[in-house]
């Protein structure tokens, strides 16, 4: 169980995350959704310890995230950002194995894990020797996912992981990712602004606006039992015919 308890954070005079409490059950996929600047990425960054809360606390089980233990907790979570965040000066292989090498894992073990991960995300082995700039956008995001999964973390934090991809690549990767999440059974918290993508992945959606949670529930809850007029407004604004969840499969 991951829990935000009364967490608030003021990033700039125009944006404050209101005191916010959120739980995430183990082995579920939750999608944080909302317009730009609603605070969804900030929640993710709070969870990764990239920003510290002004008040309240972030708990992993019983453990409270603090600067003291942040570095260790991070080794047990994977974090992927929109552009992948791959280091351009390192080969694909070196990017993926970075944290494992820091922990002095044996090259044998690293090699085996790389093989597994290539299979898992469907990346040709031959690409391991390349540099990130020599890959396509979709391949880069697959590599970023490999890097996040290298140490077999129990939590995956994904910040718009498919946001920079063209629609075709995006559809393909959405499908693959959903299968991967299902197979791994990890806790996944994903941020997106795309309703179709959110519906595709999530058991549960958290719709946010202006630093507050508007409604939390399944797609069905949001569609049929909106708790606020904004819920319907947000959903209908996004429901272009081709973007419906049904057209994905």
């Amino acid at each position: 169980m991951i829990r935000l308890e009364n967490v608030s954070k003021t990033l700039n005079p125009r944006f404050t995350l209101a005191p916010l409490s959120l739980d995430f059950e183990n082995a579920t996929t939750t999608v944080l959704i909302g317009p730009s600047g609603c605070g969804k990425s900030t929640v993710l960054r709070l969870l990764a310890g990239l920003v510290a809360p002004d008040s309240g606390s972030v708990k992993f089980g019983e453990e409270v995230l603090q600067p003291r233990n942040a570095h260790e907790l991070r080794l047990r979570m994977g974090y992927v950002i929109q552009e992948g965040g791959l280091f351009p000066h390192l080969s694909v292989e070196a990017n993926v194995a970075l944290a494992a090498r820091y922990l002095d894992r044996s090259e044998d073990e690293i090699r085996k894990r790389l093989d597994q991960l290539c299979d898992l995300v469907d990346l040709p082995y031959s690409l391991l020797a390349r540099y990130p700039r020599e890959l396509s956008g979709g391949q880069r995001q697959r590599v970023a996912l490999m890097r996040a999964l290298m140490l077999d973390p129990w939590l995956l934090l994904l910040d718009e992981p498919l946001g920079a991809l063209d629609p075709v690549t995006r559809r393909g990767l959405q499908k693959d990712l959903k299968e991967i999440f299902a197979r791994l059974g990890k806790t996944v918290i994903m941020v997106t602004h795309d309703m179709g993508e959110a519906a595709h992945f999530a058991g549960e959606l958290v719709l946010m606006r202006d630093g507050k949670v508007v409604q939390r529930g399944t797609l069905d809850d949001l569609l049929k039992r909106p708790e606020h007029p904004y819920v319907t407004e947000f959903i209908s604004a996004q429901r272009a015919p081709l973007d419906c969840p049904g057209s994905v499969a």
């Binding site: 960054r45 310890g49 974090y79 950002i81 965040g85 791959l86 280091f87 944290a99 820091y102």
Partner: peptide, 23 residues
């Protein structure tokens, strides 16, 4: 994004400087 990716990987400051930031 790159700076934060390095932090999020769980690498400590000295290692990040040497392996990521200076290169």
């Amino acid at each position: 994004g790159l700076r934060e990716s390095a932090i999020a990987l769980g690498l400590p400051a000295g290692y990040r400087l040497r392996v990521i930031e200076l290169p």
